[in-house]
Amino acid sequence: MNQEYEHEVPHDSVEDEAEATRRDAGDAESSRASRGWWDRNADEYQSDHGSFLGDDRFVWGPEGLDEAEAGLLGPASSLKGLDVLEIGAGAAQCSRWLAAQGARPVALDLSHRQLQHALRIGGDVPLVEADAGALPFRDGSFDLACSAYGAVPFVADPVKVFREVRRVLRPGGRWVFSVTHPIRWAFPDEPGPEGLSIAASYFDRTPYVEQDEQGRAVYVEHHRTIGDRVRDVVAGGFRLLDLVEPEWPAWNNQEWGGWSPLRGNLIPGTAIFVCERAE
Rank of each mutant, 00 (worst) to 15 (best):
Q46W: 13
G192D: 15
A199M: 06
L127V: 03
V179K: 01
D24M: 01
P191Y: 07
L243N: 13
S111G: 10
L110W: 00
A25D: 02
V161L: 09
P75F: 06
L144A: 05
A186T: 02
I87V: 15
A156K: 01
E245Y: 03
G236E: 13
G258I: 11
H223G: 03
A217H: 00
V159C: 08
L79I: 01
S197G: 07
Q254K: 14
I272E: 11
F137I: 08
P105M: 06
A89T: 05
A70H: 08
Y149D: 01
F177V: 06
W259D: 14
G258A: 14
P207Q: 09
A42W: 05
H117A: 04
L108C: 08
L243E: 12
P105K: 10
S30K: 00
A156I: 02
P10M: 06
A130Q: 10
S78T: 15
W60C: 14
Q101T: 12
P191E: 04
P249D: 12
V218P: 02
E69M: 11
A18K: 05
V152R: 11
H181E: 06
G215L: 03
G258M: 10
V209M: 09
E164Q: 12
V14F: 01
A100E: 13
E19G: 09
R231M: 15
K80F: 01
E213V: 13
W97C: 11
R120F: 07
D131K: 15
D16A: 10
P75Q: 12
V165G: 04
V234C: 03
R138P: 07
V234Y: 13
W37I: 01
D27Q: 11
F162H: 14
D12N: 13
P153F: 03
V128L: 04
D83A: 14
L72A: 08
V155Y: 00
I226F: 04
A200I: 00
F273D: 04
S34N: 03
P153W: 01
R166M: 01
V14M: 04
G26Q: 01
D189T: 08
A91H: 08
F177S: 01
L241P: 04
S95V: 07
R231N: 13
Q211H: 11
L108F: 05
A134W: 07
R163D: 03
G173R: 01
A68Y: 10
G215Y: 09
V168C: 14
G172P: 03
A28E: 14
G64V: 03
A199W: 08
S13H: 12
P153V: 04
A200N: 07
N2V: 09
Y208I: 09
F203W: 15
G88F: 03
V176Q: 04
R57A: 10
I87R: 06
L196H: 06
A100V: 05
L72C: 07
F203Q: 14
P261L: 09
D212W: 03
V128E: 06
W60M: 11
G227E: 13
R35K: 11
V106P: 02
R174E: 04
Q116E: 15
V152H: 10
W175R: 00
R166E: 08
A100K: 15
G36Y: 00
D43L: 05
R184T: 02
P191V: 09
F58A: 13
R163M: 04
A132Q: 06
G258H: 04
I121L: 14
F187Y: 13
Y202Q: 13
F137D: 09
D43I: 04
E6Q: 12
Y219Q: 00
